[in-house]
């Protein structure tokens, strides 16, 4: 792996051409990335990724570890800004607005593009306060009753309400791993984002909790545009409508999920999916 990576980076390759397969029934584009490059200090982590992410559907990013899929995901709500020495080039449009434009407030962007992390990270507060955090800071509720309504409906949408309704004021850290992750999803949807980014949301969970979260993702795409990074190809196949395959910092192939999994156009995609590397 490492040797391959070195080799490709040493040789200046011509601009890589992503193989794209359009949807049979194309949806409008929510997020459009054009030639996005990311640098960590001197090191280039992403070499020119372009992709259109359709609205109200699930797009999965797959690929071996270190391929840049998480890096790209973190560009979509500018979480890379929090890393010292990280630089992003190229253009990312959310509803046709450049998210790296100086006039756009990163606070607004992150409210509209929520994120769920690999490891559940509830705040050390009560379940209620965890979900109420976003609406409170963004001023989405005019009254206490409204806030409660938002919290309850978010927990319901995250299919967690029934499990926690009797202990809303107990610490969120006391829940099981799967519940914690659903709490984080509830926390994210409480601010009604347009897009939810999920960075391997099930990798720290057991199979039963994973199934629940996957089920939830499937429900959520009714209302949200979802981008999910996953290690598990089965998961990508189960939950996503479109799949993008990353390798060594480039987007190799993207297309409808069943196409990518059953009939990939690129040899590298096929090698990865059939388990020859990764």
């Amino acid at each position: 792996m490492a040797d391959v990576a070195l080799a490709t980076r040493d040789v200046p390759t011509p601009e890589f051409q992503t193989v794209r397969t359009p949807d049979p029934h194309p949806r409008p584009t929510k997020v459009k990335a054009d030639n996005v490059k990311v640098f960590y200090g001197q090191k280039q982590a992403l070499n020119g990724v372009s992709i259109d992410i359709p609205v109200k559907s699930v797009t999965a990013f797959i690929g071996p570890s270190g391929c840049g899929k998480s890096t790209f995901l973190r560009c979509l709500n500018r979480m890379n800004d929090t890393i010292d020495g990280c630089r992003v080039e190229g253009e990312i449009l959310l509803d046709n607005r450049d998210i790296y434009d100086a006039s756009l407030d990163v606070v607004e962007l992150r409210a509209r593009v929520g994120m769920v992390f690999q490891k559940p990270n509830p705040f050390p507060k009560s379940i209620f306060d965890n979900v109420a955090y976003g609406p409170k800071i963004h001023g989405l509720a005019r009254s206490k009753a409204e806030l409660e309504e938002i919290v309850v409906s978010s927990l319901q949408k995250a299919s967690l309400f029934n499990e926690v309704k009797d202990r809303l004021h107990e610490p969120g850290t006391g829940l099981s791993g799967g519940q914690q992750q659903r709490l984080c999803i509830a926390r994210t949807i409480a601010v009604s984002p347009d897009v939810i980014l999920m960075d391997e949301p099930c990798s720290a969970l057991d199979p039963i909790a994973t199934a629940k979260v996957e089920e939830l993702i499937d429900e959520l795409r009714e209302n949200f545009t979802i981008v999910i990074v996953t290690h598990s190809m089965q998961q990508a196949a189960r939950v996503s409508q479109r799949t993008a395959f990353f390798h060594l910092g480039t987007l190799v192939e993207e297309g409808p999920t069943d196409h990518v999994f059953t009939n990939p156009s690129e040899r590298r995609t096929q090698d990865y999916i059939t388990g020859r590397f990764g």
Binding site: D105, H138, S192
Partner: peptide, 18 residues
């Protein structure tokens, strides 16, 4: 409910709050 529906992030009120 309308509460958890799409939020108008571009309203003057939202901008002022930000």
């Amino acid at each position: 409910t309308a509460l958890t529906g799409p939020v108008d992030w571009t309203s003057d009120q939202a901008a002022g709050r930000r």
